[in-house]
Structures are given as C-alpha cells and as structure tokens.
Design a protein around this nucleic acid. Sequence first.
DNA 1: ACCGGAGTATACCGATCGGTCTACTATCGT
DNA 2: ACGATAGTAGACCGATCGGTATACTCCGGT
Lengths: 194, 194
Amino acid sequence: MNTKPIVLEKISARERLLAAAQELFYEEGINTVGIDRVIERAGVAKASLYNAFGSKDELIRAYLTARHEARVSRMTARLAKHDSPRDKILSVFDDMRENAANAGYRGCAFVRANAELRSEDSVKSVCDVSREWLRSLLGQLTAATGARDPASLTRQLVLLYDGAAVSSQMDGNTGAAQSAREAAISLMDAHGAT
Amino acid sequence: MNTKPIVLEKISARERLLAAAQELFYEEGINTVGIDRVIERAGVAKASLYNAFGSKDELIRAYLTARHEARVSRMTARLAKHDSPRDKILSVFDDMRENAANAGYRGCAFVRANAELRSEDSVKSVCDVSREWLRSLLGQLTAATGARDPASLTRQLVLLYDGAAVSSQMDGNTGAAQSAREAAISLMDAHGAT
DNA sequence: ACCGGAGTATACCGATCGGTCTACTATCGT
DNA sequence: ACGATAGTAGACCGATCGGTATACTCCGGT
C-alpha cells in the first residue's frame, strides 16, 4: 500500500494554532488576545505552541505571513483572468470589494497589526513585505498602461486601496471598495492610462 | 487683589494625565500602555487618575475627545483663510501634510485606536464622531463646489484622506498627503468641481 | 482656626500576561 | 520490540494588568 489518505484527516497542532490565530488576532487584535485564548481555540497544549513557534511574536509573524501568502495567490489567480493592465488594476479593487462583503471583515490585517506595534517591532517587517508587494504590483501595472506619470499614479492608487480598507473597517462601509474603484478609473483617465 | 496669576502655573493632575495619555497612547498604543506608565509620566498618584477619570476607558475617551477637538479648532482656523470651497478642500490635505511632517507622526489617532478595540467598545463612538465630522465637512464643501455628484466625490476624498494617514503611518511616507492632494485635484476636476 | 477638596505615596487585590517545566501518552518507521 | 517524534495536561514562574483602600499632607475660603 502507498501512504494512507487517512493521515490527511489529522491536522497538525501547528496548523490548528495558525487557524486559531487567524481568527482571534484578526478579529480582536494582537495585543488583546492572549496565548491562553489561542491554545484554547486551537484545542492544543501550551507546550505545542512553543514547540511549533517558540514565542508569541513568532506566531504573530506566521499569522501575518500566511495572510500575505493567501492574498498573493488569490490575487495572482484573479489577475490571470484579465489581459489589459487597466483591467488588472481594477481587479485589485474587485478583490477588496469581495473581501469586504464577507461578514466579519475588519479591514487590512497589516494595517490593524501595525497600529498595535511598539516601534522597532520584528513584526513590522512582515507588514512591510506585504505593502511593498502591492506597491510593486501596482507599479508594474501602471507602467504597462502607458500612463504619463506611472509613479505618481501608483502612489495615488495605493492611497485609494488603503483608504478603502480603513473605511470598510471603521465605518462598516461595504461600498468603500466600489468608491475606490470608481476613483481609480478617474485617476487612471487623468494620467492618460489606457 | 484679584485672582492671583500664580495659580495659572499650577497644572492640575487631570491635565497632566491627559497630556501623558496623549503622548503614550498615541505613540505606543492604547492596550500596550498600562495605567502605571501613564501616572508615572504624568508624575501623579494613581488615586488622582481614578478621581479624575474613573477608569482607563474614560481616560482613553478623554484622550481621543481632546484629540478631536484640537483638530476641529485647528481646521476651523485654517478653513477661514480660504474663500473658495475648492481651496478649503485642499487645505484639509495641507493640514495633514503639515502634521505628517512632524517627527513622531504616527498616523490618525482614531484609526490607530480603532485597530485595538474589541467590538462594541465604548471608545468606538468617539472615533465615529470624529470621522463623521470630517465626512460632513467634506460633504458641505463638495456640494458648494457644484460638483456633479458631490456624495460620490466626498466618499472618494475621504478615501484619499484615510489612505494618506495609513501610508504616512506605515511607510513613514511624508509625501503621502501631497500625493493625496494631487489626487484630490484630479478627482475634483473629474467631478466638475470648480 | 478650621474644614473640605485635591493630591500624595504605597500597599494590596484577583486576574491575566508570556513563558517554562515536568511527566505522561499515542503513533510512527525500522 | 524499540526509540524517535509529536502531542497531551497542568503546575508553576515573575511580571504586569486595571482597580481599590488606607492614611497622610497641603492649601485656600469662610
């Protein structure tokens, strides 16, 4: 016999911890949620957490990294459906619109996390990676549109993206991403992006 | 003799607590900073805090309320210097630009606070007041410009404002407010605002 | 002269924090 | 049959959390 499929049903303690961290940290905040709440939700022993991650800080980093990677793969799949750079840019806002429609959407996890950090926190670097990824993606797309000043357009589109995340989070405004999408069209037109 | 001016030199415990809260809560976060740190910074006894505010929660609310009122008076003075609604709108972004230039700028205090709140927190309402004030202000101004769809323009301007706050905070991007100002011009033009 | 309000310092409370440690168990491949 | 691996429960640690209580001092108004 080959490897038994039954093994797949067993979810490792690490994965259950990560799943619990996703829910709790995102919904209630990083500082608010203690270790004990996480292991209770995961149904896992405390020692397992420290075997798998070593510290709460590393768990937080793993939580945010997983969040980033999920977004990358989700966005990659979505971008592949479009040909023109303009449509690809708009699909970024479509992605946010769909996310914000989910119950329990609480805005960008990285913005939320950043607001809780003391300065010089090691978690900050994970946030930076995620932000730079989006900035770079939009940078390439705006350049491909033939916009007059792609760097300026990129900065403005990032503002819209961040702003929509904040508005969704603070006002429960599910239409924020749609407003951002409309504004993006105006700004692309103003920059002569095709 | 009338009331002695010497009395003015005495700063009440309440005021010193509020000043300490301003620094610590804004720089390091609401949940991160404990009561003991606040009273130590204020140079005040613990009982004075609970005499003046009753709870940490009330201190937080007072901190944010003071922050809001400071912004209102600052913005009111600035708006009075301009005549056209278009210039008034741009002055909102000028205000942010000046703030972001200050060392130690950490973004919008309300966005930061909101990211730390558990749901149904009494602090949330203070954030809402501040956000509604800005939204209402921009709403009146956009209407006065004669823009085609002032409600839509308002939503988009708020996005830019929030986005600039996030970018300033997370990327240390001191030029974010300037980018937002430029984008605001494009969006006002697109809406036919004079 | 005296009283009350404001402020002080400090001890204390139960709860929770992040983290360590011991001792035990179930399952695996060899 | 065996050791390695991954996991379990739970006691324990010092520190800190928000908050309360006690007892004292200082000062201004009547």
